[in-house]
Design a protein around this nucleic acid. Structure first.
Lengths: 184, 184, 184, 184
DNA sequence: TTTT
DNA sequence: TTTT
């Protein structure tokens, strides 16, 4: 696998939701997460404090996807290193549409959980306990059932007509153009 | 301007076309370029060599936009450091659509021309001369007229109905959500 | 300030000690920290788990130095973006020696505290309280007196003859070759 | 191979000399190169243009070392992605000394030749031909004989007493602490 | 000297 | 939708 050029994305931010884990027909895991990064500044005109949050769609593959599914939760802080990838697909009216994601895969991909030791990060209801978010601790029960097959979820989503579904791509190496069927 | 999180993109690749330069009402320059990065690998099944090219939409602002307009041409090799930004807009049918770009702006943005000394990079017809691409040399006549006002080009594009036009955003700091009206 | 080439270091790790803060004659703050990054792997021969820690010497300048002095403590986790810089100096026997540091300065420098919300990070004794490390919280009393002048500390260190002292460099822009007199 | 933390260096610059290639007892190749990055700015006081060049010591291993030996020459422009590593060694008087290098190795290491298509990059005398530098083209005769064994060169360097020689380290995984015996 |  |  050679490459001409450099295509690298580095993100440090917090998850907006629990990871969504799926499994490809090959058995390989895929985790989709959204990461927020934000900037704040003082508006020159009004003088008031302003903030802008950028949301990034990130897809992790293989072992990193499994780790993400086990340890990351809504609010978790992560370091991500991946590459930009734009998928083209057609919506219901046949128009070309594009979705850009940060793909974290193979030897070039990095996912590091940050802010350890502060526990928690459980997103499922924790009766009676104070809910903690934003960190990571011991391995937990995955938020999504790990044995869940990929195809059924596919069908399930296609039954939701209000959501535009992109067709399922084929997977040749590099299988980075994996598709999760929900336009960002 | 503080920030919570890290949002960084690093690209090394070649321009797919001459830069498109525009000027905002404030007079600030904006350059839109597309950069190709590619990976090649041997297909496990067929055994044949395969290659995949990824195209990145990049928007440069201010001084870097001016430099890009002067020195970069189709085929030029560049190093880019910027941040990911996704703009939301509505197409003609009112549907939400998203465009993700690499924004190169301010103190965090970097644009470095690579492969100097080999001259050329002119994309306009060069009668009698051997056309060279991929490098940069002495300052040249901009490919796009630099004094061209922003608003007219805006109108011009809206007259091309086959191209979906996103509405013009307002510019408060950080004005990174500049829009070039051509969905990627 | 133009640049030919790219010189960038990105670190995520934990501080080995509290930051050391000093002030230049101009009044600008300088913070020296050491950051650990580590890798672990299974030894092919012995089959046992091994780990290697790399220590990085980091120098922050200006506002980021002040923030580091206020909020960072031994064990704190940080994201650092800076540039490599090697200083040459002569030891007591007149031999050339070199010290390489990651300089975090100006608009290209980034320092982000990670792992918020878990409190603490105080390194001074905390009688009766459970000591917390590795995070950051409310502004605290600086570990080092901020008004402490630079020159005296300079003298103080020169009185410690077992430590090789590099001579004080002059500061022209870019003043990145600041020297903290203790060979790493 | 897991890692706690991030340790990443990105360089774009030009080689100060031809690569020095050596071979470890295991047969693996090691290439040592020095890369220059420079910054220029206008001095506030004198108003004159100033420039500062930073030299980086880079060690490439394995396949990338072989590619470097074949294609890179003095003046070649490269993109480098590696990690910081500081080696400790004792000089002749028994004093601890440290050398920091950018190690490019394994799956995390990247070396991309830049500015292609402009040919040349040969540093050896080229009778009658116009010498070109800074690029890369077809495979060339290595500047250093590739079959040259590691140990002899070792001895040769130790015969140069004005150069401090660090002792040869042992190689367990990760063998990144390879040593080239010439303090930077 | 950190951290897990 | 996160975080401070």
């Amino acid at each position: 696998m050679a490459s001409r050029g450099v295509n690298k994305v580095i993100l440090v931010g917090n998850l907006g939701n629990d990871p969504e884990i799926r499994y490809m027909p090959s058995g390989g895991a895929v985790a989709n997460i959204t990461i927020a990064t934000s900037e704040s500044w003082r508006d020159k005109n009004t003088g008031e404090q302003r903030e802008k949050t950028e949301w990034h769609r990130v897809a992790l593959f293989g072992k990193l996807a499994e780790v993400a599914g086990e340890y990351l939760r809504k609010g978790s802080q992560v370091y991500i290193e991946g590459q930009l990838q734009t998928r083209k697909w057609q919506d219901q009216s046949g128009q070309d549409r594009y979705t850009t994601e940060v793909v974290v895969q193979g030897f070039n991909g990095v996912m590091q959980m940050l802010g350890g030791r502060q526990g928690g990060g459980q997103s499922a209801p924790m009766g009676g306990q104070q809910q903690q978010q934003g960190g990571w601790g011991q391995p937990q029960q995955p938020a999504a059932a790990p044995q869940q097959n990929f195809a059924p979820q596919q069908q399930q989503q296609q039954q939701a007509p209000q959501q535009q579904a992109a067709p399922q791509p084929q997977y040749n190496e590099p299988p980075m153009d994996f598709d999760d069927d929900i336009p960002f």
